[in-house]
Amino acid sequence: MLAYVFYILSAISIGSALMMVFSKNPVHSVLYLIATFFSIAAHFIILNADFLAIVQIIVYTGAIMVLFLYVIMLLNLNSESEVSKSTIVKVAAALSAGLLFLVMVASFKESVALPVSEVVPGLGSVKNLGKVLFSEYLLPFEATSVLFLSAMAGSVLLAKKK
């Protein structure tokens, strides 16, 4: 039963990722990418990472993709006006991506998996992650606040008129 859920979710994520790459209209690309992110959030749920699933939905599909849609709307890019690359570049791009895929699959095929641990209940819960985040990773957590401050200052500086 759960294996079928995994297969269906994987089909949705791969299919909508492909549609994201191949659709001409940028708005359609954003919508397909949102579908991919939702299916990845569902993958997180079946992997017991419930906190990350919620964060994925709120941050990625809620904040980042809305930002993308807003920029596309602002720049008026929703026409299908993109000039496509030449055929030889397309073939080269498909070949390189396919070769990368082949090399990675071949290298992972020969690898030996470490022994799987037993199911830890509540591994990805807010309580457990909060304990790890605020004890072991307190300094990186504080550093991200500096990162956000600089990102905020940078975007204000970029958006300001000269």
Partner: peptide, 18 residues
Amino acid sequence: VTLFSIGVLGMLLRRNAI
């Protein structure tokens, strides 16, 4: 790996920066 390769493909294939 499949999702990552699709990302690389889109990076190489499309001319729209977004």
